[in-house]
Design a protein around this nucleic acid. Sequence first.
DNA 1: TCAGAATGGGTAACATAATAACGTCTCTCG
DNA 2: CGAGAGACGTTATTATGTTACCCATTCTGA
Lengths: 161, 161
Amino acid sequence: MSDTPLACTPHDHAHCVSHALAEADQLCARQGVRLTALRRRVLELVWQSHKPLGAYDILAILSEQDGRRAAPPTVYRALDFLLENGLVHRIASLNAFIGCNHPEHPHQGQFLICRDCHTAIEMQEPAIRNAIGEAAAQVGFAVEGETVEVVGLCAPCRRAA
Amino acid sequence: MSDTPLACTPHDHAHCVSHALAEADQLCARQGVRLTALRRRVLELVWQSHKPLGAYDILAILSEQDGRRAAPPTVYRALDFLLENGLVHRIASLNAFIGCNHPEHPHQGQFLICRDCHTAIEMQEPAIRNAIGEAAAQVGFAVEGETVEVVGLCAPCRRAA
DNA sequence: TCAGAATGGGTAACATAATAACGTCTCTCG
DNA sequence: CGAGAGACGTTATTATGTTACCCATTCTGA
């Protein structure tokens, strides 16, 4: 298992995607689940876009680029599989999906979403998780899952503005 | 302006709703915006439900209970108004709306959502906001809005389980 | 008081997101 | 091989959200 996070800059994006796919292959093999051609392709599409991708965006690509006859259930089933196995995250505020940077251990992501370029940056901040956990504990609430999605301007877009 | 938060227990729910509506009246008057009958009614419906309410739920109540002919745009316009003026919050992970406990100052809520009884508890935890702000600052991200939605079990449902 | 603008709201159609139900194929595994 | 499970295609349907257009009311200022 790689220790290096999968963060990457645009210039090595292709490598980053293939790295993610290879890691997904290994993970699925270890879990005894099948990363079928369709599921792998959907994962590739999600990874190729640093912007969160909607289910119907994926659907369109599968139809137009791949020539595959695909209806919504096809895509949603693949996405469900990828979500269950921690390979992608769902961004609730966008109804969209993005590749997980750290699929090797289960977690829920925290995201910084740029309103200008729509890039989503995944974070894993224990401080945020802890703050939520403490606040919940104060009112006796048992946390099972967190959604943290922050909208704003990313550093490049701030400079460009 | 009242200093008392609008938190309330079920037994004084009617009072709590009327309090919220009265506060909304004052706020809109101060802002010079019009809390029309329709908008006020939608706000009342949202407040009457401690569970987040979907736009189409509101639509159904307006049609069935009030006998008002209402189509989606009617409800969404009212909700947009209430959102803009900080009188309700939108829960992205549920596509639903809930009354804001602290409409007197603009903010984005943090929510604990019970997966069993579907009650949503609004929080205003500076610790969470600060943790997010610090994490964002580290990567040069300018925060404009936060979505914090935590799913789990509320205290009463934990005891009942 | 009246003309015109601004605002609120009704109507229809459309766009996007997600699920249900059923059938077929294929890949194991005994 | 043959039974069962899993994966995927197909059709239809439901849920959620938006757009365009029109009409009525209200506000404003000559």
